[in-house]
Structures are given as C-alpha cells and as structure tokens.
Amino acid sequence: MLRKLYGDMTRNAFAYRMLIPYVVFLALLVLYPIIANFVISLQADGLWTLKNYQQVFKEPVFAKVAFNTVIWTVGSVVLQLLVGFVLALLLNQDFRGRAFFRSIILVLPWATPDIVVGVAWQWMYNDMYGVLNDILFRLGIIDYYLPWLADQDLARLAVIIANTWKGFALSAMFYLAALQTVPHELYEASEVDGANVFQKFLNVTWPILRPFVVTTTMLTTIWTINYFPLIFTMTGGGPANATDTFVTYAYRTAFRFLDFNRSAAMSSFTFVLVFLISLLYLRALSRKEAER
C-alpha cells in the first residue's frame, strides 16, 4: 500500500507538489479547528467529561430549538425549491427582454448582503409601520395588523419567507442550467406525438431534472441548517426562542453567556447531524445514478 503510494508520488511528483498549499490549508484551517471544537466540547473545568452534552440535551428549550430547526429547514427548503423551480421554468422560455428580467430575479436577492436582507424584511414586517400589513389590509386579506415578529408562529413563518426570498436564486440557477441541457428536438418530437404541456414536462423535462433536484435539495438543506445572519438580525432567536435554531442558540451560548464548552457541544452536535443528513442524500444520489 505504502509502496504503491510512493510509486504514485514519484510518478506524479508535479501533481503532488501542487497539492501542498491545499493540504496545509486543510490541516491547519479545517481539521485542526474541528478537532479542537470536539476537544473543547468534551472538557469542563479542565477535566474530560460528557457534562456539556448532557447539559445541552437536558436544557428545557432544547426540544423547542430542535423543533424550530426542523420547521425552519423544511419550510425554507421546500419553498426555495418550489419558487426556484417555477421561476426557472418561466425564465427558460424564449421572450424579449429575458436577460433583463433574469438579472433582476436571479441577482438582486442573492447578491444583497444577509444583514441587509434581515433589515429590509424586519422593516416590512413591522407591525405598525410595516408595508406588509398595509398591503394585506388594503387587499382585504387581514382585518387587523398582524404582529409578525412578536407572535411565535408568525415569527417562524416570517423568517422562512425572508429566507426563501434570499435563497431561491441558487436553486433557480441550478434548474435553469439543467433545463438548458434538454435537447430541443425532444420537445418537438413529443409535440409531434401530440403530447400536452403536462405530458411534455413529465416525460421530457422531469427525467433530466431529477438528479439536479436531489443535489440542490442536499445543498439547500445543509446551507439552511447552517445559516445564521438572517435570524440573528430579524428576531435574535425570539420571541421566547420561537425562531432559535441550533446555530443561533449555540452562538448566543458562546458570546452572550460566554459558555464556550457548552456552545462547542451544541455546534459539534449540529455538525454530526448535518453530516448524517448529507450521507443520506449522497446514498439517494448514487442509487439514482445506478438506476440510469
């Protein structure tokens, strides 16, 4: 084994030399901090212990934070994928001015800095002066102004909507790229066969899109679980921890309550969770590849 590696290293010496900076980077800036975080999470008062993990799981709000994280992730991912999908289908049509509309739809939300997104939506959700209540009231959808960020369920919905606005562009880009690989002749052929819009979608578009849907779902799920600044700006995890996720909670544990060990336990737990979810997706992806 070692001999094989040595032979490979002499044959491809140039390639291995090119890897040196990256390997140094991986060791110092990725591996070392992750191991350090586990070590910190397993220590208290200078001793090795599981106390931090026990405390995290016994915490009264832990169940609530776990629930929030699930709602936040599932809600955001489903909405982002749906909105991204519909917009990709729309932008894939041929029409005059497409480049213009595409740059607004795909660039504006995605390029706006996270904190600015938080500020803008926080202001739109304002219960007294917010534009959202005004519009909904004028349209007759609500009879009185809603306290968007003060009510627990509404606040959960509010951060998910804001996150959808911020994040749908990425899945739209993936879908758009996928749609552009669908050969035109296939559509024409199915049209000759008398297929309607839905049949065309089901038989031509969907088979090509499917692997993209899995990849995009995986990336969006991971990024949503890990996403921090929007909730931090809009609600700070409130009201009454209703929008706290593992990540915002771990952050506050570290920098407001200055309990680094417990925060490290929380974040290591999050890391393992994300890792397991990714493995599930990767297995689904390789199964589908095998089917084809």
């Binding site: 990725v30 070392y32 901090p33 992750i34 350090a36 975080n37 910190i40 679980i225 890990n226 921090f228 593992f246 990540v247 771990a250 952050y251 570290a254 680094f260 925060s263 490290a264 929380m266 974040s267 290591s268 999050t270 890391f271 994300v274």
Partner: peptide, 9 residues
C-alpha cells in the same frame, strides 16, 4: 461544515 463549529476554535 457549519460556521458555528469554527467560531470558538
């Protein structure tokens, strides 16, 4: 990797 894992180390 969540950013939060790196923040303390």
């Amino acid at each position: 990797f969540p950013q939060i894992v790196f923040v303390i180390p």
